[in-house]
Nucleic acid binder design. Structure first.
Lengths: 244, 244
DNA sequence: AAGTGGTCTAGACCACGGA
DNA sequence: CCGTGGTCTAGACCACTTC
């Protein structure tokens, strides 16, 4: 990435400036809430007019890369969408919200050669290894959800069972592996509890249950996680708000 | 709404122009895909500079009120979110997508004094009447979903059973009553089919089912619909994508 | 008072679409 | 070709924050 405006480029100046600033944010040269150059400084440094600088900054603000405070300056946005996305799926937060104490037990932790269904879902090559682990989520010591997760080994080498027991999965991927979550896809179906599921969840065989499948993507559009969950139908509900 | 820029107003010119244009769109003086004045014409008509006009139009484009086509002009956006919102819930569209023929049968149509649960959900006053009707949705003649809907009578006086049989509900509310859909809230749970539900849906008692509840809001934040649905668990799945 | 972003002007040239 | 929106300049004054 050239850190100057190319006067012969077919790309507009404001667009080139945007790309320069985005690159600095994604390279971590600029971190969350860091202050950018002032508009005047951008004008001088890149020898462009203030209107051009303002167009670049305005678009970056619209795209949530930065925020502006009059009289103070322009700053790098915290990654709010990623937070929202994770909050959306956070068993821990949801349970705390309704005053329950969340606990997660790792029942099973393996590194395996996946079957063809998992290979297809994770979009990996045959022969690539994946983590497979099953977690039981409890609220106030009552079993709620049984989750089995598949994660490509190559993307996150060196995760151990004890990592999972200590640290929430998403915290691990974000902090240890610098992962950025960009997209998630989730599917719900109703089903009936099988005997072994009923036993683990402490509920009756044939009881109502929600079957959830989740695919999570990073900022390179790679699939970083596939999780299949069984949630107790008497305890679990799903709420969506759609608003402009 | 004054259709001139007030030079003494504390409001900025571009903001005043935005409000003028929004008012024209919401008054239906400008309809979907109508062309607006050109930027030059706005400059002349309101005696402001082109940069000011462009700021107003840029923000309106960001807010999806308008779209611009270089060389052609600026146009009023179709109400895409409303379409998306409805598409999201449109049984008809979903079935067509997978090549099934959707049919809807109105099993029951009444105007009632609602019970306290419905009064609370619809946020109406005791004594106000509501429509209550039950529809069975079929795909290729196979029963899929059983929906019971409650709608405040006062907001939409004069709906008849035959209206519902002829016209999709949302088309009726949009076109006959000029309703604008702004927000919807939906809740899912797993449950087991009761005997009478199983009979209507042509499935086994105790079979898996999805219980859906939906609240729909108009642009005045009034609740215009509460629907409780039972969907066959073996036929129905729900898919969500979250993306920045 | 000095420095920041917010608004606004008057003017220029370019790229695209249509007659 | 002309009219449209797209980009860019150089400069002005205002409102807000900090010192």
């Amino acid at each position: 990435m050239n850190r100057i405006i190319d006067r012969n480029s077919p790309l507009s100046y404001y667009y080139q400036l945007k790309q320069i600033i985005i690159a600095m944010i994604e390279n971590r040269e600029l971190k969350e809430n860091d202050r950018l150059l002032t508009e005047k400084e951008f004008c001088e440094q890149y020898d462009i007019s203030r209107a051009t600088v303002r167009q670049a900054l305005q678009e970056l603000e619209n795209e949530d890369y930065i925020y502006k405070i009059q009289g103070k300056g322009t700053f790098v946005s915290p990654k709010k969408f990623q937070q929202d996305l994770l909050k959306f799926y956070s068993f821990t937060d949801e349970m705390k919200k309704i005053g329950k104490v969340p606990v997660s037990r790792v029942l099973n932790f393996k590194i395996i050669e996946p079957n063809s269904k998992i290979i297809e879902l994770l979009r990996i090559q045959p022969g690539q290894q994946v983590y497979e682990f099953t977690r039981l989520r409890l609220a106030d010591q009552e079993p709620m959800i049984l989750e089995t997760t598949y994660i490509p080994y190559d993307l996150f080498p060196g995760i151990s069972k004890s990592d999972l027991e200590i640290t929430p999965l998403y915290d691990l991927l974000i902090n240890k592996y610098n992962t950025i979550f960009c997209k998630a896809e989730e599917m719900f179906r109703s089903t009936l509890l099988k005997e072994e599921e009923a036993e683990i969840l402490g509920y009756i065989k044939g009881g109502p249950a929600m079957l959830l499948e989740r695919l999570t993507y990073n900022n390179n559009q790679q699939i970083i996680e596939y999780t299949k969950s069984i949630a107790r139908g008497d305890k679990f509900k799903y709420h969506v708000v759609l608003q402009k």
